[in-house]
Design a protein around this nucleic acid. Structure first.
Lengths: 344, 344
DNA sequence: TTGTATGCGTTATCAG
DNA sequence: CTGATAACGCATACAA
């Protein structure tokens, strides 16, 4: 059996309240006594029993990361960032995977309510009434990562997808491309869908290039397979295209696969640009030129924001948190050809 | 505030012990009463407070999955399997990532001891005295996944890496390859290192093919970059090779990248074979021929074994668990050329 | 079969 | 500054 606060108290010849204070409010204890207690704590390897603390003050020192797909490296990376910050705050991170699956999500939320988790980071998924309702049931602070919740006043951490998409498209244009196709995410998704789409369109227009429904294929998914299929459709509409920009790396790589199967070389015949800068994007040949998000840092920042909110709530302050915009960056690899240089 | 067992008791006009029994031992309670209580439970949305239960009987209903790298799709997949089984047993899974990092690992173990987690699944990492000591400190059942602990009598779930490697090599040989190089994992690692290496050597010998130190490069890591570097070394030793077999898909893809940069085409000039069947391996061009482990199923099986052990322990039985061997399978994609067919 | 009473380990309140 | 004690919610030994 682990030593309890009573064991410590007995051995140090003090009351249990003193031991408790040494833990929770050390300055309020006379130095000599404090040292004596600390020594015994050390000797016995005492640590407060979290069940007892939890029972007392209804806090678990656990936060939850809610993500769509742990097998997707994007979220794995984000988790690393979250974990790092949580660890240094002496919190534990629980993962709620596959949040698109409502039944599963509900089951988890129930567990979390019971566990009295102290906060939630919710990633990359469009906030519907369903999710909002469940956030409410949890009655804890929520921070969004790579998604948007202005409508409900939820703080978020994400890049400016519109601007990033604008920059990516501009990069292609600056490399001499004019017939550029876009493989978009779902039309309804505000971030990975609409914002990136609008950034693309705006950049084309800003450079007086034609852009129409012909230039775009929307997909429900943003996966490798979806990219492959979307590229097939796009190619049918735009056989003359010289560049494709995809709203995710996975899609871009799917598109590359399709082009490859058509006997088209990247970047000789068609240039390809992605979005995300997954680990994966440097493993393909040629390396994928893409827009980098600082994913780990998004995770870290979201966690920091969350702890701020948790603290605010503990001190019964009621400051709303600011949302944060992260930087983005274009990573140049080999998949985009500069048509302004030596035309072959 | 959430309803407590007392609220239910009052509203149903029974004692709290009856309510408790309805939860923990329903048959021991008179049907009529049970129904009355259940109805109130429903109405109030009552659920036992896990802190209180935990405090009482020192169990958390949490298991831990200890893995080296959550960003590696292999473990992400395994986690899915573990989670599924845990969920259906009304357990929660906590993830302990980056277990190679001893400091971090220790921090986690401390947390887990305090949390009184009920069991551990430990994946893919060589069991050193350090880990074993910490398992002991946790004093809960441990099941190994994709690693080996016969020495300490720990049950494990994994494929027969020796046989799988033998089969992979044989596949290359049957496709007419003779000058085959092997990119191995760490020489010290019993599974991904030694067993796969020995399987390779045995297959070569079984087919009367020459095999020596010249045919093999060992790497500390089994990553993309390690594969790239190892391939460079191997190619320097064996410029005439017609096939490479790598101990992991990531290495195989790194090797493909190197070959590509040398102007060598896969599989025209060199055939490549991997191990793991990551999602990734079908995204590269050509698709990687590889050895598939049923990773999700390994996770599931490990979790099932663990719950069996937890149950045994609760009932104070002391049956040792059997280890389990999983099937493997060769997945044929485009990266291996059959030299027995039309020689170009 | 049901109810009563106790203790799990902690923290906070209050009295000294 | 320190100590005694109540309360958190539950499960069980024991009594009825």
């Amino acid at each position: 059996m682990n030593p309890s606060i009573r064991d410590v108290a007995k051995k140090a010849n003090v009351s249990i309240s003193t031991v408790s204070r040494v833990f929770n409010n050390p300055e309020s204890v006379n130095q000599e006594m404090r040292e004596r207690v600390l020594k015994v704590i050390e000797e016995l390897g005492y640590a407060p029993n979290p069940f007892a603390s939890g029972l007392r003050d209804n806090r678990s020192k656990v936060i939850v990361a809610m993500i769509p797909d742990i097998e997707n490296p994007y979220f794995a990376e984000m988790l690393s960032g979250i974990e790092e910050v949580a660890l240094s705050n002496r919190y534990t991170v629980m993962i709620c995977n596959d949040i698109q699956n409502e039944e599963r999500f509900l089951h988890y939320v129930k567990t979390f309510v019971k566990m009295k988790v102290d906060g939630v980071i919710f990633a990359s998924t469009v906030i519907t009434e369903f999710y909002r309702k469940n956030f409410e049931a949890l009655r804890v602070p929520v921070v969004l990562a790579s998604t948007e919740g202005r409508e409900w006043n939820l703080p978020s951490v994400r890049v400016d997808d519109y601007q990033a998409s604008f920059d990516a498209t501009t990069f292609l244009i600056q490399n001499g491309h004019e017939a550029i196709g876009f493989l978009s995410g779902p039309e309804q998704a505000p971030i990975a869908g609409r914002e990136r789409y609008e950034g693309f369109v705006a950049a084309m227009k800003a450079h007086d290039l034609p852009v129409s429904a012909q230039h775009v294929v929307f997909s429900e998914e943003m996966s490798f397979d979806a990219g492959f299929a979307a590229m097939a459709k796009l190619y049918a509409k735009m056989p003359h295209l010289t560049a494709v920009y995809a709203a995710s790396d996975a899609m871009a790589i799917g598109a590359m696969q399709f082009l490859h199967q058509q006997g088209l070389e990247v970047p000789r015949h068609v240039s390809v640009m992605g979005f995300d800068n997954l680990e994966l994007s440097r493993m393909v040949s040629p390396g994928l030129t893409t827009v980098a998000q600082q994913i780990t840092k998004i995770g870290k920042t979201a966690a920091e924001l969350l702890f701020q909110a948790i603290e605010n709530r503990e001190e019964e302050r009621d400051e709303a948190l600011e949302s944060v915009r992260m930087e983005h960056e274009i990573i140049v690899r080999g998949s985009v050809r500069n048509r302004r240089l030596l035309e072959e």
